[in-house]
């Protein structure tokens, strides 16, 4: 395996061939905020929080989808990038009904934590307050569209890891919704195997277990599953 060397925030760092800028940054403890990224799932580049500056290009690049290239010079935390990231978090908070105080994911929510880490104490945009529903038809879990950030982690984990493809998106723009099967109640879904993977990857309080106040999160469980499957090793 050949190794690539590049500069990140002024420091020389090494990268395995084909590694993304995000992987390189994580390896070297350089923080880059992410939301749609989830270890072990395919990348979609949707949240735009991980955008970084690459010298020689006036386009910002999504670190989660950009491969490290020999000699690249990358900046991950300029004032411009920080300002864009704050705006993106504010846009998300204003978009749906993220009422942290009464949310099951309060203090475990990745969106809330992003806001804290970026010093977002208030939202400058008009809260949209859309009227959205909840789907509580499944015996164990609830989908609350009010808290969904449309990261599509649930869609991907269900398709790529569980192989059920119960979830997908419908509608467009601000009317985009996560739906099960062909927009049937989750509890009536014929494809859902009730494995619960979607609940575990959801970054917010959009997917949660009935009767619990905090979601059951494990950022590494998909990687673990994939490795265990490959190596037939299930002890953790």
């Amino acid at each position: 395996m050949s190794v690539t060397t590049l500069t990140m925030n002024g420091t020389l760092v090494s990268a395995a061939e084909g590694a993304t800028l995000l992987a390189v940054a994580r390896e070297h403890h350089i923080p880059i905020p992410t939301l749609c990224h989830f270890e072990g799932l395919s990348e979609v580049g949707a949240c735009r929080l991980c955008l970084v500056e690459v010298e020689g290009s006036n386009r910002l690049q999504a670190a989660c989808m950009t491969k490290a290239v020999e000699g690249m010079t990358v900046t991950t935390n300029s004032e411009t990038l920080r300002s864009y990231r704050r705006q993106i978090v504010e846009l998300l908070l204003a978009e749906r009904n993220h009422v942290c105080a009464v949310c099951v994911a309060n203090h475990t929510c990745e969106l809330q934590n992003l806001a804290v880490s970026m010093g977002v104490h208030h939202v400058r945009y008009e809260p949209q307050a859309p009227q959205l529903s909840m789907d509580a038809s499944h015996p164990r879990w609830i989908l609350d569209h009010n808290r969904c950030v449309l990261c599509t982690r649930c869609v991907r984990v269900c398709d790529e890891i569980e192989g059920a493809h119960t979830w997908d998106l419908m509608g467009r723009g601000r009317h985009t919704l996560v739906i099960s099967d062909l927009h049937e109640p989750w509890g009536q879904s014929e494809s859902c195997t009730s494995c619960g993977k979607c609940v575990r990857v959801c970054p917010t309080g959009a997917l949660f277990e009935k009767g619990t106040s905090a979601t059951n999160k494990d950022p590494h469980f998909v990687t673990y599953l994939k490795m265990a499957r490959e190596q037939k090793l299930w002890n953790r």
Binding site: L93, V99, H122, P127
Partner: peptide, 20 residues
């Protein structure tokens, strides 16, 4: 100073907004 989430963001007090 906006003191607390309701003042800052509407919060619980604004839960009625989606209903019009």
């Amino acid at each position: 100073v906006a003191f607390g989430d309701c003042a800052v963001a509407g919060n619980v007090t604004a839960l009625r907004n989606p209903l019009g």
